[in-house]
Structures are given as C-alpha cells and as structure tokens.
Design a protein around this nucleic acid. Structure first.
Lengths: 226, 226
DNA sequence: CCAACTGTGAACGGCGTGTAAACGACCTGA
DNA sequence: TCAGGTCGTTTACACGCCGTTCACAGTTGG
C-alpha cells in the first residue's frame, strides 16, 4: 500500500509504533513545503497529523494538504482533549480525529474506517520495472505505456516474477507460488506460459524474462548487471 | 432541528445529559420496529446508537437503520473499547464511532463533524464518468443525458462500480459491499445483474463494464487511458 | 391480481489452460 | 569433431472452466 504522510517529523514514538504494528507504511514530513518533494512515486495514501506537540504547525499542515487541486484524503487528526474546543468551524481540515493519549486499537479502527469510507486505497498500486507496469487494482499491464492484454495466469506469473526483479525462480517454485501449493502438473506448463508472455511483451522486450539454464527463469537484470 | 434517534430506550443517563447540554433534540427508540412508528413528521436528523448495555440490540438497530432505500445518516455508534475488535468488516453500519466512557466534548465534536460532513462535504451528490451520470440524491441515472430507468439493485451496483472507475472487483467483493456483508447467495447473481445493466446502458455503452476473466468486473477504462 | 424486481438453475459456447511431441540449441565426453 | 544426451523452445490440440444467456420461481408493491 502507498505510504501515509505523517506529521510531525519525527512523529511521536507511540504513533510510529502503533502505525508499524498495524502494518501501515508511512513517511514523516515535517514541513508543508516538503510534501511535494517527499511524495513517493505512487503518491500518498492518506495522512495522519498529530497536533500534540505543535498545534499550529499541524493546522498549517492540514490546510496545506487540503488546499490545491488534489486535496489529500483521508486525513486523520490527532489532538489532545484540551484542543477539542478549537476544532469548531474547522471541520473541513480533516476527515476524522482521534483523542490523545490514543488507544492503539482505536487508531487502527479509525484508519480502517476511513479507508473503507473512501472506497479504495485512493491511488492504484503499481508494480513497475523499466518499461513494464502492472496495475494491481485494475489487473492491467502496460509496456512502454502501451497496454498489453494478458490472461489471468499470464498476469499472475508476470506479477510474481516482476515483484522480485533479478531473482531466479525454479519451475517448481513458480508452480507452487503462482499456480498454488497443491498444484500437481508438469513443469512444461511454466515454459509454455513464459513463451506466451514473451510473445505478448513483444520482440523488443521479450528479453525482460531471462532463461537460466538448468535452474529456471528470472525477470529483469541480475544485481550484477549481467 | 429535527430530533436525533437515540438507542436504547431509555438511553444511558450520561448520554442523555450530554445531548441535552449540547442543545440537541432527541427521542429514544428501543426497538427497530418502532423506528417508523416513532418517526417525527420532519423525519430523523440522524442517529446515536449506544452499544454499551445491549451490543446485539445495537447492531440490529444499526443494520435496520442502514437497510432499505433511505439509510439513516449520519449514524454515530458508541462502544466500549473492548468491542473495538468487533467493528471490523462492519464499517457499513455507522459513519463514526466514539469510545465509552465518553468525554462530552468529544461527543459534541463528533456530532458536529458528522453533520458538517453529511451537509456539504465529502459525499458527492453526483457520480459522473464519461457519458454516465448518477444522481445520488434522486436515485436517477442518465447516459448521454438520456435518463435510464434502473432498478434498485442495478442502481446500487452501478453506483458502487462507478465510484471506483478502473478498479476490478471480484464477485465476492461485490456481493459483500453491494448486497451486504451478510448476504449469502450464488455468484451468478452478480453476472445476471451485470448483464441487465449492460442491456440498459445500450449497445453503445455496454462496454463501460468490462469483464476480467477469472477475476471479476471493472467499470470504465484503466487509469492509463487504454 | 398483476406487474416489476430479484435470485437461481441449466444449457451453451468460447477461450484459457495444460499436455504431448517435435524441434533445436547447448553441453559433454570420447 | 562428432555423437549422444540434456534442456528449453515451439507448435498443435483437446479438455474443461468460466462467462453469457435464457427461463422460471419467489417476492414485493401497487
């Protein structure tokens, strides 16, 4: 999943720990001006802003995230109960809030509820390598920006390979991981699917999938640039 | 302002006191069957459901308020922190929650935030995609400006799909999100509704709904503009 | 009581998938 | 250098899954 934007930098330890425990990926940003510069390629999935230590900075951050053409959603605001009164007439700055000191389970529930409400992980999850791009959400593939029509198994196989570029997988590994642990069939199956993949990638990019003789197949270059 | 529906009957004293202090008008309803009978002429403004004393009854009430053609919004759920874990996958039953024992200021803030959101924020009144336009308020659909007559389920399905254009949904996901998480029925149901939708969209626009073999269905084009 | 809406079972057809077999490239040893 | 073997590539084909479509039953509302 795309990382969450977290304010301030560094975040309160209990917040960081709680996010990690919940399995969220996140990145702290200390200043509104750094939001664009620090934005990952996939974009922000949402934001968690703590007003505990620096209330004014937090408000500035919220306002900055919400203005502009693409307001960042969802946005969760963490505040102390003494600051509750200041919230009034600023409801446009956040989607939900959570009182400090927070209970980890409450934070988890609020984040999940927010993402459920917004309907999706906001932006597409992508697996990219060189000219290849796989959109996990839409089950679509593209090479050099040109869409490629893949069947279900072709897509799954390519996704698995491209998730670990440079790593060699044996046919047995591929069969058990892509086809399923209980799959029982010949190893030739893998070969044929690799061939169909290469054909669809086109002559120019067929070389993205390397054959490692007597071992298996590898997607992309090895780490030594062979 | 219209009264809030409050559960249970009688409500916990601290809840009643807190609502009164905040200047809310409210009316307690102890049983889902009494929601219609006790509804004031102006209708309910929203609901506050406490799961403190009777968790199962509270869930039943939430479900009852949310089902039907006119789900009651906004709905605030009050729960003890030990019940947090039960919330998962029931995010459709409420719009926000508040942990017990509650802080009066927090309840006020959450109610105000909810009414602010349902009043003018977040929820789009129109879902548009290319030639398709869905009016959420009036439950009407139009293609190329021409109104299309959709049944309830057709409308809900199309609205859900069109809310996340490009994203692929499995039949299971559609059944749980559109039909309800507790729906138990065959996946063929989805197919047939998709077919009816395509028919009503007309030959020209039937392609708006794509079949992703072995996966599910997708509305609209991918974000790569295929 | 009729009409519209919704869910389910079954038949049909297409295409994705797995497998066999021929072919060719590469390696090894004599 | 040639023979034999190993391994990957390529082609062809049949099976069966999966989506489509239709018919019909159950339900609800007017």
């Amino acid at each position: 999943m795309n990382p969450l934007l977290v304010f301030p930098e560094p975040p309160p330890p209990e917040l960081a720990q709680c996010l990690d425990l919940g399995g969220w990926t996140w990145k702290a940003v200390g200043d509104p001006d750094r939001v664009i510069a620090d934005e990952p390629d996939e974009g922000w999935a949402g934001a968690v802003v703590s007003a505990d230590s620096d209330p004014d900075g937090a408000i500035r951050m919220c306002r900055h995230l919400r203005q502009g053409e693409m307001p960042l959603e969802p946005l969760l605001l963490l505040i102390g109960d003494t600051q509750l009164a200041n919230l009034e007439s600023r409801y446009d700055l956040f989607d939900d809030f959570c009182l400090m000191p927070m209970r980890p389970a409450e934070l988890q529930a609020r984040l999940q509820h927010l993402f459920w409400s917004s309907g999706r992980g906001t932006r597409p999850e992508l697996v990219e390598y060189g000219p290849l791009a796989l959109n996990i959400e839409t089950y679509q593939a593209a090479v050099d920006g040109e869409p490629v029509d893949l069947t279900y198994m072709e897509y799954e196989l390519l996704k698995f390979l491209a998730s670990s570029p440079g790593k060699v997988f044996t046919r047995e590994t591929l069969l058990s991981r892509v086809w399923g642990y209980d799959y029982y069939g010949g190893a030739r199956t893998v070969d044929v699917h690799i061939r169909r993949l290469r054909a669809k990638l086109g002559e120019e990019h067929a070389g993205l999938i390397h054959t490692v003789r007597s071992v298996g197949y590898r997607f992309g270059q090895s780490r030594w640039g062979i």
